[in-house]
């Protein structure tokens, strides 16, 4: 038997994966190899086009006059940013985003609580809630459109025969927001429900023992614990709402000043065939989204999902 020899105390803090250095290198190689195809596809289909799009945005490039292509510097940006339509579209997009995400947060929280706590028909509630999430946006948009169409629609009948909702700016925007909220609330609710599951029951029991009523339990215990989940859900939904396209395209086609920035870009590109202006708008949207994401992550401290280095 050996007595303790202090000098030879080995470091034992590393109980990590047992690998020889060759094994470690093989692991790295395998890791890179497995990720390479996914990374290459994503880079090729996003990275290259983004660079290309920045380059296009510095050109005068109209497919109707292809021989007039020339480098114009930041002129396109000047054109777009001094254009009233762009700013109308930007304002509309921002309005739709803020209002619909706010409503979704409230409704989504209610739906999450219902799905989490209901005593009857939990499976049923969860199942039907997934239908708006899964349904093709265009299909849902058509359903709303026909519902608001005078004479044809049940909703049009409800608001009165003389009002054509989709032909006036504010009612049309409300209809768009309604369609957007209907479609995405369940997704919001699911993300929030995942956060709800993280609130331990004992914590709520402890809070009620400490004298908190239902509303206080909700605001003082549940919301703070759920905060990370709420922020992630908000980030996801804000960025998603900002690129709203399908609903507006079907419901109003962007008329009466209801067009979003995505609609504007599409109009310039596919309908107007103006690649230079379309690309300029693409770049501006990209910058706007990057700012929103930055604000969420830096200012609100949203934990970027997946930022946790994957443990085993």
């Amino acid at each position: 038997m050996s007595q303790t020899t202090e000098a030879a105390r080995p470091a034992t803090t590393h109980r990590a994966k047992p690998v020889l250095s060759e094994g470690k290198r093989a692991e790295r190689r395998l890791g890179l190899l497995l990720c390479a195809p996914a990374a290459i596809v994503m880079l090729a289909v996003t990275g290259w086009p983004i660079i290309y799009s920045v380059w296009l945005s510095l050109q005068r490039y109209d497919l109707r006059f292809p021989d007039k292509q020339e480098f114009v510097g930041l002129a396109n940006y000047g054109t777009v940013l001094s254009n009233g339509y762009w700013w109308t579209a930007f304002g509309t997009t921002a309005l739709i985003t803020v209002v619909s995400v706010a409503i979704e947060l409230v409704l989504g929280m209610a739906l999450a609580l219902i799905m989490h706590r209901t005593l009857v028909g939990r499976g049923l509630v969860r199942t039907v809630s997934l239908i708006p999430y899964g349904i093709v946006t265009v299909v849902a948009a058509f359903s709303w459109k026909f519902a608001w169409t005078p004479d044809t629609g049940y909703l049009a009948k409800l608001v009165g025969p003389d009002t054509a909702v989709l032909t006036e700016k504010l009612p049309a925007l409300s209809a768009i927001i309604l369609a957007e909220v209907w479609k995405t609330t369940p997704f919001m609710a699911l993300l929030l429900m995942a956060g709800l599951a993280l609130v331990p029951d004992d914590l709520l029991k402890a809070a009620s023992m400490d004298g908190a009523g239902p509303w206080q339990r909700f605001t003082k215990v549940m919301l703070p614990v759920m905060k990370p989940a709420i922020l992630v859900a908000l980030l996801f939904r804000t960025l998603d709402a900002f690129r709203i396209f399908d609903n507006i395209f079907i419901l109003t086609g962007g008329s009466q000043g209801t067009g979003s920035v995505s609609m504007q870009t599409y109009d310039n590109l596919i309908r107007g065939l103006n690649l230079g202006i379309g690309s300029t708008m693409s770049v501006l949207i990209f910058i706007a989204v990057a700012i929103v994401a930055f604000v969420f992550i830096k200012v609100f401290g949203t934990a970027a999902p997946g930022s946790d280095p994957g443990r085993r």
Binding site: A8, P10, A11, T12, T13, H14, R15, A16, P18, V19, L20, S21, G23, K24
Partner: peptide, 12 residues
Amino acid sequence: TKRYADGALAVS
């Protein structure tokens, strides 16, 4: 003896 790649000695 077990020594990990980073030099840590786990079993001697």
